[in-house]
Design a protein around this nucleic acid. Structure first.
Lengths: 109, 109
DNA sequence: GACTTATACGCACATAGGTGCGTATAGTCA
DNA sequence: TGACTATACGCACCTATGTGCGTATAAGTC
């Protein structure tokens, strides 16, 4: 079963992905913090969840091109995309969880 | 004239450079902190000094290869080397400053 | 139902480079 | 010598990812 954090990551990821193509940990933390009013999820927990889901095949990832980070004068980002398996797992879990308000359901539209 | 920080950077840089080939800001901060007992120089001040000296031609710099940072699982480093002009400026300044104990003089050996 | 075990979590901190802002210090000029 | 200006400085914080450690919570076993 999907944990609440994993559900939230897939939810936010599937919302951002069609617009931006991919998403990364730090921005995701900001998004989740805004969504829940305050910083519900610590950075350590989020990055561990991302690695876990990457290893499990729910997400796929790659390092951003160094030139982009260099041009913006910031550290490199690790870019994530929700895989087919991730989306399937999300849709299955969201249907049962939506009534409890655990997810926004935004990505189900 | 060279500022104390700039003198310290050149001193440490010229000590490390023959061994390591180059040096970077974060390790330099550790070295200077150990040398003076405690953290005399804040990170912001150090990085600003490095940029200043880079622009002035006392140092030259390049970003580390992304693969190295990735293999070690850490952010990329900016690698600095003391230029000929930097070494000349250091030797000139160190001769007059050494009596006051401002530099270790290690790099003059 | 109690007892053990696995793991997800938050907190603190590390690694690396960098900016914004107010102050202190040094240098310049009248 | 006093006022005025430039800049170097420390402090706090930002961007981004990640680990170590102790705890809380859930799952599994007897």
């Amino acid at each position: 079963m999907l944990l609440p954090i994993e559900l939230a990551i897939l939810d936010a990821g599937l919302t951002i992905q069609p617009r931006e193509g991919s998403f990364f940990g730090f921005a995701l933390a900001r998004t989740l913090a805004e969504r829940d009013g305050s910083a519900l999820v610590s950075h350590g927990t989020l990055y561990r969840a991302l690695n876990r889901m990457d290893a499990a095949g729910l997400l796929e990832s790659e390092w951003e091109a160094p030139e982009l980070a260099e041009a913006d004068g910031r550290p490199r980002r690790r870019l994530y995309r929700v895989t087919g398996a991730g989306e399937a797992a999300f849709r299955a879990a969201a249907r049962t969880e939506q009534q409890r308000g655990t997810v926004t359901g935004e990505a189900l539209a």
